[in-house]
């Protein structure tokens, strides 16, 4: 079944024709060529595909593209305010060496931003670790990811994002 979908991705209106079975992540990667969002598993557990839909973090491998009809989608590609300037979470990941191979990173960053906001910019280590339940990383041992998120929370607050 072919369906037309329209949504806003990173502030831009986009549309396309998809099959009913097309996942949001497939729409982003294949139809829009936005390959920053990754697929790392087929059981909705690794979190490499996390994006924001209407301000909430979700696994784009476990949502149909048609379900995002009319939604505002934010992906890793849309975070940085400019080519020179990164989002404070992106900055913190870099400053704290919170990424190695980079594959889990987009989902990790998207989850992290959502976490910071939900906790009103106030986090402790235990909370960060628990909140990362839906994101797997095989390289960093999580140590620096946790550090980065703890560092980003006040930075996001002061940057007003």
């Amino acid at each position: 079944m072919t369906i037309s979908v329209a949504m806003t991705v990173n502030g831009k209106a986009v549309s396309g024709k998809v099959e009913a079975r097309t996942l949001l992540v497939q729409f982003l990667r294949e139809n829009l060529g936005m390959t920053g969002t990754h697929v790392g598993c087929d059981t909705s557990q690794c979190g490499a595909c996390v994006v924001h839909v209407d301000g909430q973090s979700i696994k784009s491998c476990t949502m149909l593209a048609v379900q995002a009809e009319g939604a505002k989608v934010m992906t890793i590609e849309g975070l940085a305010p400019s080519a020179e300037k990164l989002h404070p979470m992106q900055e913190a990941f870099r400053d704290n060496h919170a990424l190695q191979c980079g594959f889990c990173t987009p989902g990790m960053v998207m989850s992290a931003i959502d976490m910071v906001k939900r906790h009103n910019y106030e986090l402790d280590e235990a909370t960060v670790r628990r909140e990362l339940e839906g994101n797997l990383c095989r390289c960093t041992g999580y140590h620096n990811i946790v550090k980065a998120i703890l560092a980003a929370a006040p930075a996001m607050k002061s940057a007003g994002v």
């Binding site: 390959t35 920053g36 969002t37 890793i76 940085a80 990164l86 992106q90 990941f93 870099r94 191979c101």
Partner: peptide, 16 residues
Amino acid sequence: VLRTEDKRFLTGTGRY
């Protein structure tokens, strides 16, 4: 030294 490769991975422009 902060990593040179990070920017592309952090902005979704890495190429796998």
